[in-house]
Amino acid sequence: MSVSSEFILDVRGIAIAFGGLKAVQDFSLRIPRHGLYGLIGPNGAGKTTCFNLLTGVYQPDSGEVTLDGERLNGRKPHQIAAAGLSRTFQNIRLFGELSVLDNVKLGCHLRGRHAIAGTLLRTAYYTGQERAIESRSMELLEMFGLAARAGEQSKNLPYGDQRRLEIARALATEPKVLLLDEPAAGMNPQEKLELRALIRKVRDQFGLAILLIEHDMGVVMNLCEHITVLNFGQTIATGSPEKVQNDPKVVEAYLGTE
């Protein structure tokens, strides 16, 4: 228990193979409460596969994932979300036809009760919950600067806004650990700067741990306290940004051998 109280997310040696391809091998990671960790690596290194393993989209062939003392292996994605692990997607997966507000409301869904009788009869509890969902969602949208667009269809938002909306939606599930899959992709330098501040603010204000995949080294090196580097499904380096940056294996993975 001492481990689980110090580290919120404890990943021990998870692995998965697709056919003959070992997409992720022996991946281990421990994230402390309020930690801000990074996961980097060249394209196809298995970063998103790791996220899919953690969130139950794939089941690991071996290894163990523990979130705040709870074992996550064998659980379905929605149960893992309920346990407190939320994520965003590399290729934005918003509910396009729905409004921006409804997207965040769907994030709140998890923490509510949705009995069918209450829904149809519009009981006091149901109504109160809808109001709570609405006010909470609007708070989140305001924090992310999207309140003015709450009524728009989310598919009509500009790219950067869509990325931020995904984070807002993930936060609405009240996670203990937030996984961000390339949050800065497609953003301009100014937006990236703002995103950095935003991610820090999210971590501090919500008191959660964040693990992010990012290609933009500026974002990763500035933001993350600890970085894991993947290449061909294997962890090739792990440690502080400075340490990782100077690791010859990492340089080799990114630039190739001379």
Partner: peptide, 21 residues
């Protein structure tokens, strides 16, 4: 209702719906 949003989310993107719990 909240159930209705859940219905629509499945139609929009099942993977994302699951990820949202």
């Amino acid at each position: 209702s909240s159930s209705g949003r859940a219905f629509l989310s499945i139609r929009e993107d099942e993977v994302a719906a699951q990820a949202m719990g």
